[in-house]
Amino acid sequence: SSEEQMCGTHRETKKIFCEVDRSLLCLLCSSSQEHRYHRHRPIEWAA
């Protein structure tokens, strides 16, 4: 659903897949302290 594609923290669309956590992130989350050094892919890659 579209609600699942929205970041609850930043209200941004989740467009990035974190390979380490195997989760979807928004651009702001992907550059956060928690995920900054993880490997990321565009969401299309994970589909």
Score class of each variant (00 low, 15 high):
residue 17 F to G: 03
residue 26 C to R: 01
residue 25 L to S: 06
residue 9 T to H: 10
residue 21 D to V: 04
residue 35 H to Y: 00
residue 14 K to R: 13
residue 14 K to G: 04
residue 39 R to V: 11
residue 27 L to K: 14
residue 36 R to F: 03
residue 25 L to P: 00
residue 22 R to F: 01
residue 2 S to L: 09
residue 19 E to Y: 02
residue 29 C to Q: 13
residue 41 R to Y: 03
residue 36 R to P: 04
residue 8 G to W: 09
residue 44 E to S: 11
residue 7 C to S: 03
residue 5 Q to N: 07
residue 40 H to A: 01
residue 43 I to E: 15
residue 31 S to A: 12
residue 32 S to N: 10
residue 39 R to C: 06
residue 13 T to S: 11
residue 47 A to H: 12
residue 44 E to M: 05
residue 26 C to V: 00
residue 18 C to F: 01
residue 31 S to C: 09
residue 31 S to N: 14
residue 29 C to M: 00
residue 10 H to V: 01
residue 42 P to W: 02
residue 36 R to H: 13
residue 26 C to P: 00
residue 1 S to P: 06
residue 16 I to V: 10
residue 44 E to T: 09
residue 40 H to M: 03
residue 32 S to F: 05
residue 14 K to A: 12
residue 22 R to N: 13
residue 36 R to M: 07
residue 6 M to F: 01
residue 43 I to R: 06
residue 7 C to L: 02
residue 39 R to W: 07
residue 6 M to W: 03
residue 13 T to M: 15
residue 11 R to V: 04
residue 30 S to F: 01
residue 12 E to I: 07
residue 20 V to S: 11
residue 1 S to M: 04
residue 15 K to A: 07
residue 43 I to A: 15
residue 24 L to F: 11
residue 24 L to P: 09
residue 8 G to Q: 11
residue 6 M to I: 01
residue 14 K to I: 04
residue 46 A to R: 08
residue 14 K to N: 06
residue 35 H to Q: 00
residue 7 C to N: 02
residue 32 S to I: 00
residue 11 R to I: 06
residue 21 D to E: 10
residue 3 E to S: 10
residue 19 E to W: 03
residue 3 E to M: 08
residue 12 E to Q: 13
residue 5 Q to T: 07
residue 9 T to R: 11
residue 33 Q to W: 07
residue 26 C to T: 00
residue 18 C to S: 07
residue 10 H to T: 01
residue 42 P to Y: 08
residue 5 Q to E: 03
residue 21 D to R: 10
residue 3 E to A: 13
residue 7 C to W: 05
residue 2 S to D: 07
residue 32 S to T: 08
residue 9 T to W: 07
residue 18 C to G: 01
residue 25 L to C: 09
residue 41 R to V: 03
residue 39 R to S: 14
residue 29 C to L: 00
residue 37 Y to H: 14
residue 29 C to S: 00
residue 41 R to L: 07
residue 24 L to H: 07
residue 33 Q to R: 08
residue 13 T to N: 05
residue 8 G to N: 10
residue 6 M to Q: 08
residue 10 H to N: 01
residue 13 T to F: 09
residue 34 E to S: 08
residue 41 R to E: 09
residue 2 S to P: 12
residue 39 R to Y: 07
residue 45 W to I: 14
residue 35 H to R: 01
residue 42 P to Q: 11
residue 15 K to C: 06
residue 32 S to A: 09
residue 22 R to I: 03
residue 35 H to L: 00
residue 38 H to A: 04
residue 6 M to E: 10
residue 45 W to E: 15
residue 26 C to Q: 01
residue 47 A to T: 14
residue 38 H to C: 01
residue 15 K to F: 07
residue 5 Q to H: 07
residue 7 C to E: 00
residue 12 E to T: 13
